[in-house]
Design a protein around this nucleic acid. Sequence first.
DNA 1: TAACTAAAAGGACATTTGTCCCAACGCAAC
DNA 2: GTTGCGTTGGGACAAATGTCCTTTTAGTTA
Lengths: 186, 186
Amino acid sequence: MLRTNNSFLSFIQQLYETKKHHKEIHLKRFPKGSRLLQQGEKASKIFIVAEGITKCYFSEENGKNYILEFLGAGEIAGELEVIKNINCLCNIEAVTEVQAYVLTVPIVKSLLANNPLFNHMLLTELAERIINTSSRSSFQQLYSVEHALKKLLMLQSEHQLSISKEDMAAYLGVTLRSLNRLLAVK
Amino acid sequence: MLRTNNSFLSFIQQLYETKKHHKEIHLKRFPKGSRLLQQGEKASKIFIVAEGITKCYFSEENGKNYILEFLGAGEIAGELEVIKNINCLCNIEAVTEVQAYVLTVPIVKSLLANNPLFNHMLLTELAERIINTSSRSSFQQLYSVEHALKKLLMLQSEHQLSISKEDMAAYLGVTLRSLNRLLAVK
DNA sequence: TAACTAAAAGGACATTTGTCCCAACGCAAC
DNA sequence: GTTGCGTTGGGACAAATGTCCTTTTAGTTA
């Protein structure tokens, strides 16, 4: 649930420190609660988290939110939008204060076109995401919310990740009321 | 829901017809109902569908199934397993009679290592899958099954895809009983 | 201290969904 | 024919979940 990616992190750190790309890559601070990407809007930048935690979530038209995953150090956001040339699929929001590398679209396109290592890392990352997303999706559809909650609580303590009840409910895809009920009986 | 991929299809057709790789690539027929990949087992081959339709689904330990998507012409299966070096994530089963190109692991690894076009196509394909999987997952978690059913029926007629009630239920992540109830009132 | 606010907890009721059945139908094999 | 089997459809009841509200709690600010 809290994903990190050391290969990406060291890759981008090295790239950043060569100072060759100071116009295309910079490090920026995002206060807690601020948005890195806004669902539906044009993705004009790509982010790689350096420190802190963001949440990646859909806002549906009925006002409900669904959290896909929490992105920590080394995780990339906005790359799907560049590859497929679409507007932001979902929101990326800082859950804690966040430091992130901000890359321009051209530099990412150039990395995609010319850098085999970057391509390989990205392929691995996307594969990992598909595995996570699809197995969680299957699990949540086929097991009771109670099972999913147990798993969530385990993951949470494993990653020492403390999130609000509202976010927990949004991760499980249920209402806050249902979550409270389950926490009460357990 | 019924995914196809023309770039992959023509790519593999050309590769197959050069006859340089007759040991690593061959075309095989799969009768309706047979398995191309079996969840949990070693993925010793990679498939690209030439004709027909397969379903890609998880079998959970509680006996229930969840259908991720239907794969038609040009769709690839088993590539995640090669990239991440894991056992089969889910089952791939022929829904109709299927013709598929069967590739060995070494040829796929070599394509991954040496063929930029293949890499690019695969990156695009994985990006597309993440978009599909995650937006469907969000939709199904946050809207009523009734909404999801409407969408499914639309997609089905759009793709002229006729599937059993059981498969429809497995796609929606509900029981057959619930599906029947919804179909009755509508 | 008092007032305000956001997060957390839960009561009451309606609705949805699952579980466990059984019945009807179509189709193939004998 | 009739037997068997898989698919489809649905009744009855229990369990889970959503909706709408209210209360409690803790933390912040005036």
